[in-house]
């Protein structure tokens, strides 16, 4: 079985808003699958449909090769999920929280097993502290631990790095990568940060207004030949002329007061700078972006991804 999730023609309408519109995608086994879209694009609705928290109006969801509606219990038994930012049971300890969710998943976990799980998310030393003393990042990691506690094949994480500080983001990122690489889990992860997804995802699906925009392997989506470079020089007009005559595989897309945007293979960027300097054009600034990123940024309303990360 190579496909873990197969979604076909999924539709969900909330009064006059079509939250998910004829969405289809497949999540291959063992991958980290990035599910991208700006806030309100329909990510959460889709995830909730995957977890039977919302019933779809139309379409089919198959997980582990079984129909979700008919085999809800079997599927959820093999699925772990963290939705939004759960506060967990603040008056219980991490260990108690974890045991509780293990039991809910029909599993009888030994204390040792639970401690191992907490260790994996770096919470073993605080296992006996009440969750109300935890930071947001620790709660998020505990949430992930509860999703992992019954050793599921599929892990669904809804915006897991939302609201975390850079260190927290790095911790979650490493955890996700190790779950995928070391333990072969399939991870379906939603985010509105392309930069983050680029770092961890094997495949990616971008949606907007409930519709699919792009789906594919990150390696292919982020084709280095398609890198977009924004250059500001001492003489933009001359630079454009020189570039069109050069041997570089660069094409000038646009030249304006903000600079020149050039599509070029990532490996040729240093050559581009050298060439311009050689020919007597001073480079004032250079910013490289992947075209997909540019595209995504236009979707998120032109926010730079430093700003987006800050959200």
């Amino acid at each position: 079985m190579d496909t873990i999730i197969r979604v076909t023609g999924l539709v969900k309408q909330f009064s006059d808003v079509r939250a998910v519109d004829n969405l289809s995608f497949t999540v291959p086994k063992g991958q980290v699958y990035g599910f991208l879209g700006q806030n309100g694009a329909g990510k959460s609705t889709t995830i909730r449909m995957l977890l039977t928290l919302i019933t779809p109006d139309e379409g089919d969801i198959e997980i582990f090769g079984m129909n979700l509606r008919r085999h809800r219990r079997e599927i959820l038994r093999q699925t772990g999920a963290v939705i939004e930012r759960p506060d967990m049971y603040k008056y219980l300890t991490a260990l108690e929280n974890l045991r509780l969710f293990a039991t809910m998943s029909g599993m009888k976990a030994s204390e040792q097993k639970l401690m191992e799980q907490l260790d994996q998310v770096g919470l073993a030393s605080r296992a006996h502290s009440k969750v109300k003393t935890y930071s947001q990042g620790m709660k998020q990691r505990l949430g992930i631990a509860t999703a992992l506690v019954h050793d599921p094949g599929l892990i669904i994480l809804d915006e897991p790095i939302n609201g975390l500080d850079p260190q927290g983001i790095a911790e979650i990122r490493n955890l996700i990568l190790s779950l995928s690489r070391d333990r072969g889990k399939t991870i379906f992860i939603s985010s509105h940060l392309l930069s983050e997804m680029e770092l961890i995802a094997d495949s990616m699906l971008i949606i907007d207004k409930g519709k699919k925009l792009v789906e594919g392997r990150v390696r292919e989506l982020f084709d280095p030949a398609e890198t977009l470079v924004m250059v500001k020089t001492t003489d933009d007009e001359r630079a454009c002329k020189l570039l069109s005559q050069s041997s570089l595989h660069a094409s000038v897309k646009e030249a304006g007061p903000a600079g020149i945007s050039i599509t070029i293979h990532r490996d040729e960027i240093p050559l581009l700078v050298n060439k311009l300097v050689e020919l007597g054009v001073g480079v004032l600034s250079l910013e490289s972006k992947h075209s997909l990123e540019n595209y995504f940024l236009s979707l998120t309303g032109g926010q730079s991804y430093v700003e987006a990360a800050a959200n």
Binding site: L53, R72, R73, L76, V82, I83, P86, D87, M104, S105
Partner: peptide, 15 residues
């Protein structure tokens, strides 16, 4: 619902 644990619980194999 307030603690955010309701969704976690309902995504477990419990009707």
């Amino acid at each position: 619902a307030n603690m955010g644990t309701l969704r976690l619980s309902l995504s477990r194999p419990v009707s």
